[in-house]
Design a protein around this nucleic acid. Sequence first.
DNA 1: TGTACATCAGTGAACGCGCGTTCACTGATGTAC
DNA 2: TGTACATCAGTGAACGCGCGTTCACTGATGTAC
Lengths: 214, 214
Amino acid sequence: MRDCNRQNKDTRALLLKHAEELFLAHGFEGVSIRQITEASGANVAAVNYHFNGKISLYREVLKQRLDSITLEKLELLKNLDERHSEVTLEQILYSYIYSFFDAHFSSPDSDRFLQIIYREMAPDAIASDLVAERLVIPIQQAFQKIIMKTCPELHGDHISRCISSITGQVLHFIRAREVLKGIRPAEQNQTFIEDTVQHITQFSLRGIGSQNHA
Amino acid sequence: MRDCNRQNKDTRALLLKHAEELFLAHGFEGVSIRQITEASGANVAAVNYHFNGKISLYREVLKQRLDSITLEKLELLKNLDERHSEVTLEQILYSYIYSFFDAHFSSPDSDRFLQIIYREMAPDAIASDLVAERLVIPIQQAFQKIIMKTCPELHGDHISRCISSITGQVLHFIRAREVLKGIRPAEQNQTFIEDTVQHITQFSLRGIGSQNHA
DNA sequence: TGTACATCAGTGAACGCGCGTTCACTGATGTAC
DNA sequence: TGTACATCAGTGAACGCGCGTTCACTGATGTAC
């Protein structure tokens, strides 16, 4: 009787929505097709009907999220690029690094999502190609373009490696923060973010070693 | 007939040995109890008899490997410590960073093992406590002690964060190297190691910002 | 305007599989009297 | 020195479960003549 006679409730969209929620919360292996279809009020067979199996559905979900994150980061970088003559390298680094922590701790989803991206960066992951093509490469390129404008004396390869160094730090501080609490305990959440972003910014600013801004 | 009448073949040790091999090659979920017991020539029930379940066996395996890696790194750091008056900060960083890449690419196991450690660093992992207590914390402390001796003008908290920055970079460059190949392609393996270690060393040396060695 | 057929979204039930765990058991060895 | 019992390593078979996938199906809608 509930939802009685309502055909065309767009099962496909519902599946996608609930799959996103569940995969983000519990990872690929942590979610069964039955959980997804039950949450969507559909039949177990629906996932196979609409998406040709669990893996394709997962990749579909991932695509969407990766694209939306990439879009967001490119937006930020575009803003910085437009103001690049009035902005210091330090400010660029700070904005970029802060944006990770900000996005990360403002949404309960994104903690889990970072774990997922992390896992998918492994060479044998189920979707490392998607992470590379839709996230890492476009962001890296845009970021590199800005830094090259701001520090024209630096070599492209050097900048590229420095960006990887920054990304590596950001991911590590966020992801391993529970483990790191065993080393530097007793930080409040807000000062943790502020302190860590400042540290990574200053460390990396020196690390880049631009003559313009040293 | 094979292995006929040989009691006391120490099933427990065999299980541990093959579990290590298999878990390292395929991860926790990637290995079934049946695979382990078959490889060990034992009955399916043997894992539960000797180890009280799959998780305990996994943690046991992990403990051993973590301890052996920690021991190895502490050895390296002890050597550096003993020579700390004749060694520059740059040499210390280089040795430490290089040791990760060296260990990593000289053994086929260790690539997979790094993935495992990585995964176990996540807050909700099956053994993040082991990674913290038996690997990250002891190494961090020993490393910090050396740097404090070499750069007495630096604050302990600052050094601690810098070490995390170094670790983050090392892990990222190793783990995400396939993804990063999309950005900086066409490096041979040996020059990749040499170039990357040099980059991380120099980047971090500047990042630490010691007055003594800038 | 009516009929026949094709298409499409979605269902329901079952299939076969591999999993971790359990439990009653065997047979060798150690120990107490 | 012999017997009775306890302990221990290990086995074999089965249990129950949850999984992803399959397949024949329904019933609504669109299309051609």
